[in-house]
Amino acid sequence: MIELENVAYSYGYAGGELLTEISLKLAPGSFHFLTGPSGAGKTTLLKLLYGALVPTAGHLRLWGQDIRAMSRDDIAILRRKVGVVHQDCRFLDHLPVAENVALPLTVSHQGGPDQAQNLSDLLGWVGLTARADALPPELSGGERQRAALARAVIMSPEIVLADEPTGNIDWEMSQRLLHLLVELNRMGKTIMIATHDLQLIRAAKSQVQARVLRISNRRVQLAGADL
């Protein structure tokens, strides 16, 4: 599905590579946490995984295709197979929640009656039916994260990547969001969550078999048993 082989990435300015010798395979249906200190490269690694960045060295294969051999359009289309949730959610603030959630359908010209039902079900699943017509700035932190998750999964992606999804919400909301992600994993989706919230990781491990990866010294390592 997604495979990294000796991948390195550098932003080009002084300081050298941010990530190096990353070899990783995300198998279908697996659940991963990515942890590490701020600035370690968690977000950069996630960006590599959804094709927003191209490795400066090594091989990154998305569904068998090397990203360097792909055109920008190919990457855009492939990105529809990857749902992404950011800490800051990234909405179009002038569009209501329902339209924001449906954006992936809109840009891929897949809107229609079936999808309208799908959207309605999805908003119900994340508990935002009543907030469908609200604008993103009117939502609470937890509601924004759930809306972002709904948008991430509306195309039924094979992988969901979440970058610090609980960074701006309270513990109760974090639990609720985690529950939704675990539910998705049980449906067969591959999940990777970048977080430094150890409490969240422990809570997840009690519900699902999760692999915890730590970025340390520019490399990805399997975290110890304390997690």
Binding site: R79, L103, P104, V107
Partner: peptide
């Protein structure tokens, strides 16, 4: 730029 970033994130092609 933020709108473009969001459109990219959800899989919009450059032409779109």
């Amino acid at each position: 730029a933020q709108v473009i970033a969001v459109m990219r994130l959800v899989g919009a092609r450059d032409n779109y």
